[in-house]
């Protein structure tokens, strides 16, 4: 069998994606279980997207992104969002220097490769929008000067699903800027036993830096080259359109349950995430399995439910499942 172009691409991907195994090896030293979270972090990193993480406290969210930053020899900042946080605390500000008798720029913690925005919904909208604007523009203006943010720039924001009092939920338009919304759950019993042993022993394993940020930037370029066939494009648009116009896709029952469906950004991110997933799986082309693997994470925060759906305890997960089970696979 002759595979034109793709064969070369596959070989290139085999070469360029070797670091994936190294990253996994290092990450597995400190993170037990949560394979999906690590994989999603890699997808975000490779496709230049940001991640919104939802999970109860203590599930190694901070440890994961800190370890990833360490493995990639990158800067890491952790910002705890609180109700009194100001945009300047995040982005930086101008400070008057008595020595030089002029205002100097003091950059904020956002100037790092990896940002953990912990409990993003605890801060008011002005701080949230400052972060989300920086995420979108990849640059920050302090005073009269505009500073580019470092590349790669990955934001992992967390939300606690159990405490809603005194929070400022992210508006739909802001949530849409996150490429993936990952829901993480508790580890399995066996995994928890390993976590327990690791934490009560005297020696805590440490990660080593195995690749540089330049390698990641190179890998990103390769990810963009991953082949996406027209059949897969149609499959993606069918899935997103089914979330917008369910009746046209034999899903009339969702007509009153979905208030709004996925945006064009959903289609773009579904394609990009699928490409990154194929890259992680060492493939030079996207197959329907890749789309299905990332569909939940790309769509769950982009489908709005109506009051009827909430009254009937219907979740976006169920809607996405039904859409995937109804749309014909190419």
């Amino acid at each position: 069998m002759i595979v034109t172009d793709i064969k070369e691409l596959n070989e290139k991907i085999q070469r360029e994606s070797q670091f994936i195994d190294l990253i996994n090896l290092e990450m597995n030293k400190v993170i037990i279980g949560q394979k999906s979270m690590t994989e999603r972090l890699m997808i975000g990193l490779l496709s230049n997207g940001h991640i919104l993480l939802e999970g109860v406290p203590g599930l190694a969210k901070t440890l994961a992104i800190k370890s990833l930053a360490n493995v990639i020899k990158a800067d890491f900042s952790r910002i705890q969002f609180t109700p009194d946080l100001l945009p300047a605390d995040l982005l930086g500000t101008l400070i008057y220097s008595q020595k030089s008798e002029e205002f100097v720029v003091r950059k904020g913690p956002i100037f790092a490769n990896f940002i953990l925005a912990d409990e993003i919904n605890r801060s008011p909208a002005k701080v949230q929008s400052a972060l989300l604007e920086a995420m979108q523009e990849k640059q920050v203006t302090i005073g009269e000067k505009t500073f580019k943010l470092p590349d790669p720039f990955l934001v992992m924001a967390t939300q606690n699903p159990i405490e809603q009092e005194g929070t400022y939920p992210l508006p739909e338009a802001q949530v849409d800027r996150f490429m993936l919304k990952v829901v993480i759950s508790y580890p399995k019993k066996e995994e928890e036993k390993l976590i327990l042993r690791q934490n009560i022993s005297n020696e805590m394993p440490a990660t080593n830096s195995v690749i540089s940020t330049e390698d990641i930037l190179k890998a990103r370029a390769v990810v963009r080259e991953v082949y996406l066939d027209e059949k897969i494009e149609n499959y993606i648009t069918d899935i997103v359109f089914a979330s917008r116009f369910p009746t046209e896709y034999r899903l009339k029952k969702f007509e009153k349950l979905i208030s709004y469906g996925g945006s064009p950004r959903a289609s773009i991110n579904l394609a990009l995430a699928a490409k990154a997933y194929a890259f992680i799986k060492r493939r030079g082309y996207v197959i329907p399995e890749d789309i299905r693997a990332v569909a939940h994470d790309v769509l769950r925060h982009r489908i709005g439910l109506t009051y009827e759906a909430e009254a009937e305890n219907i979740t976006t997960e169920e809607i996405i499942n039904e859409i995937l089970n109804t749309i014909e696979v190419p």
Binding site: M1, T4, D229, P330
Partner: peptide
Amino acid sequence: QIADLVKFAKAQPT
């Protein structure tokens, strides 16, 4: 699997 390669990876089987 061959069909997937043809459909999604421009494969040209013999």
